[in-house]
Design a protein around this nucleic acid. Structure first.
Length: 810
DNA sequence: CTCCGAGACGCGTGT
DNA sequence: CGTCTCGGAG
């Protein structure tokens, strides 16, 4: 690994390009960024630290390539992992250059695959109107397969089977390619095969299939491969450290001998190994693409010094790094604040107070983020925010297009589009209820299975009342299709909502108001989609891409497309026919879980997992639940690899903060419906003490009681936390707090109950060998007294109190 | 067939 | 604690 010296760079470029100040595009770039943006058309690897201006480099690079005439819009592909990232890229690019970004291949891996398969559906052996299964759809499809094979769901857990199938596909393996170890894995492969057959029958593909199908078509069709390889002169890959085996192989298919691939990534931010990401792809890429230029972007433009010190110090505990350190010229800024709470409830309460102080001091709510390791942790915080009427927005969790009522509506739309979609059929055939019960559906599924046809096609095989109801349901869908023919997307959806009975159903429901609101939101979303994607009356096929200098002739002779429209409007390769707005909208719904249309635009506090925070930044960040078992998560604590990934995750979390960072942990937490006792995260031991400021007394934490914590909470309000750091860089001086109220009697009582052996559950103790821990359980009396103590790093231990020396920590 | 309540089970991260 | 599944009554 070598770093290009920016001073003698870029070598050998035309003079016009070497003058940075001449070109407004390049103004303000630092030497490394400048070098990256203006690299010659060869394979390159950009190691871009957090906050180092990575997106700026990517977009400026594309703009510069276009502006200098090195490529045409059609000659570049830029691929990201998230819709958020690709949208941002498009927006920024559009602001830099007057270019029709729509015609460019900029999107997520899955979005680009979709675009590719829409154009080549025939060669890919797909029906023209193939539908995409989201996670929920895939899971129910897997369940159906398992049921259909008469297998035990205990032995073949649908979730695990899905995991197995997706994992196999991400390794590029079809059922025949999977190596079988034993009877169990043999059966798994059979399920995989049956699932695949079912998908083929129904004309649907899952996320992994989008990637694999595209890869295979490119691999097996030399004409197609050559066309695309010659077409793309530049391919830029964002978040390269997150690519899996299949995505890397996919990239190699699209990158030809003349293609300059720029991989941008940060090994320290690799947090998706659990779903197959291979950081090793970075090293492989450097070798296999014979990378000449490796550039490190280490200058951070986001955070103050103390925050970066914390990040650098922490990540330094990882081995196997490519080696990179963030630096800033912004000064130390405020210290990183650390808060300990007695319970998750108290933690939420404390966050609430801090949020309000920041807001009163003038910070926008949207600039405050609360991060947690797992989605389940959001609930306590949400209810605290809700009760205090503080606007907030939750990312992840239930997304718009995943809500039950929205999925029902989409299922009707999908049936209108493709009536063989059994997943959708089963979802709404009896919703709202129309006298079609389990018995009838079983007969229907049996009939379908035997004839190898879809449920829709098999309704005739079921007799009796149920059979008649099925026929009536088919007729309903048919008439919806007929009646909406030629209508606008909005009209189609409104008609379907009425005709299906969904609206009427929710009107009579007790809690139906919210659901109706969401259904109306669906209409709005469709309307916005139509406007955005240009499906208006004057919609025309988007322009054919012009090939830049040195580009190949178009591939029309081979029946290949050289016209590329917006993601969902790709014309058919042969007929040039454009997808219907409905079909396009359904694709959109499957690929973009619908970030959450609801409270968008409002100035709201942002709640999300650390994973979904990647790529974002905020003025103030709270990292919550920093406890052993939670963060790092218990399932990842046992092996070194898992722990290193957790540490990278923590690194990502820390580097989201611009000005103020809070780290918070709690002694107790409601999990699985019961109270758990936790030790603070080991990550605290890996942070530089000089950058931290403990808001609660240091090392006196464990089990020191609710009363103390209660008092501390009030002391904090009285300005304790503003002593350090206030006035340094930001002007958030907390207002004076009210006088401290007396400690409630109930809390005093709980502290006083420490009778007997002088220990109680929740008590913090010190053991000479295991260190600090928390008493989780107490049993027995006198000589037999024993305690279960959770020592975090050493795990929970049973100790005989007559033998073990436990010193209360208080 | 539909509705409702009791009981089981889970919460690790995402396109 | 919340959601999903299953069993029995209407």
């Amino acid at each position: 690994m070598h770093v290009q010296d920016p001073s003698d760079f870029p070598p050998g470029l035309p003079p016009a390009m070497a003058l940075p100040d001449d070109n407004p595009l390049l103004r303000g770039l630092n030497p490394e960024q400048y070098a990256a943006v203006t690299l010659p058309p060869q394979a390159s690897l950009i190691l871009a630290g957090a906050g180092s201006g990575k997106t700026r480099v990517l977009t400026t690079r594309i703009a510069w390539l276009l502006q200098t005439g090195q490529i045409s819009p059609g000659g570049v592909m830029a691929v990201t992992f998230t819709n958020k990232a690709s949208k941002e890229m498009l927006t920024r690019l559009g602001a830099m250059l007057p270019v029709n970004v729509r015609g460019m291949w900029i999107g997520t891996f899955h979005g680009l695959c979709n675009r590719f398969l829409r154009a080549h559906w025939k060669q890919a052996n797909l029906p023209q109107s193939f539908q995409i299964l989201d996670n929920g759809d895939t899971l129910s499809a897997v369940k159906r397969v398992i049921k259909g094979m008469n297998l035990d769901e205990e032995r073949f857990v649908p979730k695990q089977v899905h995991w197995f199938i997706a994992g196999s596909k991400e390794d590029g393996l079809r059922p025949n390619d999977v190596v079988v170890h034993d009877g169990q894995s043999q059966k798994m492969v059979e399920i995989y095969q049956a699932y695949q057959d079912q998908c083929e029958r129904e004309g649907v593909v899952d996320f992994a299939e989008l990637m694999l199908r595209t890869y295979e078509l490119m691999r097996d069709d030399p004409l197609l491969r050559e066309h695309y390889q010659r077409r793309f002169r530049h391919i830029l890959v964002d978040e390269f450290q997150d690519t899996n085996k299949l995505q890397y192989a996919w990239l190699k298919m699209f990158a030809g001998p003349q293609t300059a691939v720029m991989a941008v990534g940060d090994d320290d931010q690799s947090i998706y190994a659990f779903r197959g990401a291979q950081v090793g792809n970075m090293a492989d890429f450097e070798r296999e693409f014979r990378v000449q230029h490796v550039i490190k972007l280490e200058r951070n433009y986001r955070s103050f010094g103390n925050i970066l010190d914390a990040a650098n110090h922490l990540i330094g505990h990882n081995s196997r790094r490519l080696g990179k350190n963030l630096r800033t010229e912004a000064g130390p800024g405020e210290p990183v604040r650390v808060q300990e709470s007695a319970s998750d409830f108290n933690e939420a309460q404390w966050i609430l107070e801090e949020l309000q102080q920041l807001h009163r001091a003038g910070m926008h709510r949207r600039e405050m983020a609360i991060l947690y390791r797992s989605n389940a942790q959001s609930r306590v915080i949400e209810s605290a925010l809700f009760n205090a009427s503080i606007p907030y927005r939750v990312y992840g969790g239930l997304r718009f297009f995943e809500r039950a009522e929205v999925k029902h509506a989409l299922a009707y739309l999908r049936l209108i589009e493709n009536c063989n979609d059994d997943t959708s059929y089963l979802r709404v055939v009896n919703f709202p209820t129309r006298g079609i019960g389990a018995r009838t559906l079983e007969q229907l599924q049996d009939a379908a299975r035997q004839s190898g046809r879809s449920l829709w096609q098999s309704v005739g095989a079921v007799g009796g009342k149920g059979g008649a109801n099925l026929v009536a349901f088919n007729a309903l869908v048919d008439s919806m299709r007929n009646e909406t023919h030629g209508l606008t997307l909005r009209e189609i959806i409104e008609h379907m909502l009425q005709r299906s009975g969904l609206i009427d159903f929710y009107r009579t429901e007790k809690e139906g108001a919210d659901r109706i609101e969401n259904l109306e939101e669906l209409v709005t979303a469709a309307e916005a989609f139509v406007t955005q994607e240009g499906f208006g009356k004057d919609a025309i096929a988007l322009p054919v891409d012009e090939h830049g200098p040195g580009q190949i002739a178009d591939g029309s002779a081979a029946g290949l497309p050289n016209a590329v429209a917006a993601v969902d409007m790709t014309p058919d390769a042969e007929t040039g026919e454009i997808m219907s707005p409905l079909a396009a909208f359904l694709t959109h719904a499957a690929l973009e879980a619908g970030d959450n249309q609801a409270q968008a635009g409002q100035d709201a506090v942002q709640l999300m997992t650390v994973h979904s925070a990647k790529g974002l930044e905020f003025d103030a960040v709270f990292i919550t639940g920093l406890e052993e078992g939670l963060f790092p998560h218990e399932n990842a604590m046992s092996d070194a690899d898992g722990l290193e990934e957790e540490r990278r995750l923590m690194y990502v979390a820390i580097t989201r903060a611009r000005q103020r960072l809070y780290l918070s942990f709690s002694q107790t937490r409601m999990l699985h419906g019961q109270t758990k006792y936790h030790v603070k995260s080991r990550f605290f031991d890996e942070l530089p003490e000089t950058a931290l400021k403990w808001l609660t007394p240091r090392n006196q934490g464990f089990g020191s009681g609710f009363a103390r914590d209660y008092q501390a909470a009030w002391q904090r309000g009285s300005g304790l936390n503003s002593v350090v750091g206030a006035g340094r860089s930001s002007g958030w001086n907390p207002p004076a707090a009210p006088a401290m109220p007396p400690v409630p009697a109930s809390m005093q009582a709980s502290a006083a109950k420490a009778a007997g052996h002088g220990l109680r559950v929740g008590q913090g103790v010190f053991h000479t060998k295991f260190g600090e821990g928390v008493i989780v359980t107490l049993e027995g009396k006198g000589e037999d007294a024993r305690a279960q103590v959770n020592f975090g790093r050493h795990g929970p231990k049973w100790l005989a109190l007559s033998v073990a020396k436990l010193t209360p920590v208080d």
